[in-house]
């Protein structure tokens, strides 16, 4: 128990918990009142946003030395996959939404 309370002494941890809690509410609010017609594009857009994991893959690469070949290979693969998620995700969402434009 003391250990858990001790975790909160670190202001960084507390700050992160604030962010998590607030972000959860933002996520709930943002999706709350969306018409069903937009569920698929919305899922696809959210899918592209979690491609932000690519930042992690880039950080891995930047923190790895040239001598660590296995890590570089995996990191390279991670960046490729992350980019696929981001670019593919946004482009596919855009294609879906392109069709929603008003025609008169």
């Amino acid at each position: 128990m003391e250990k858990i309370i001790a975790l909160f002494e670190d202001p960084g941890v507390l700050q992160m918990i604030y962010i998590i809690v607030l972000m959860i509410f933002v996520g709930v609010e943002v999706i709350g009142h969306v018409p069903a017609v937009l569920h698929t594009p919305l899922m696809s857009g959210a899918n592209a946003i979690h491609g932000v994991v690519i930042i992690g893959a880039i950080l891995v690469m930047l923190n790895t030395g040239m001598e660590n070949v296995p890590a570089l290979v995996l990191g390279f693969l991670a960046v490729v996959l992350g980019t696929l998620n981001v670019v593919g995700g946004f482009v596919v969402t855009d294609r879906m939404l392109e069709m929603f434009k008003k025609k008169k």
Partner: peptide
């Protein structure tokens, strides 16, 4: 969390919660 990287944290949590509601 691992990198203390805010954009990964916010983006990830946002999709996590929005995805659950969806």
């Amino acid at each position: 969390f691992l990198y203390g990287n805010m954009v990964m944290l916010t983006g990830g949590i946002l999709v996590g919660s929005a995805g659950t509601i969806l």
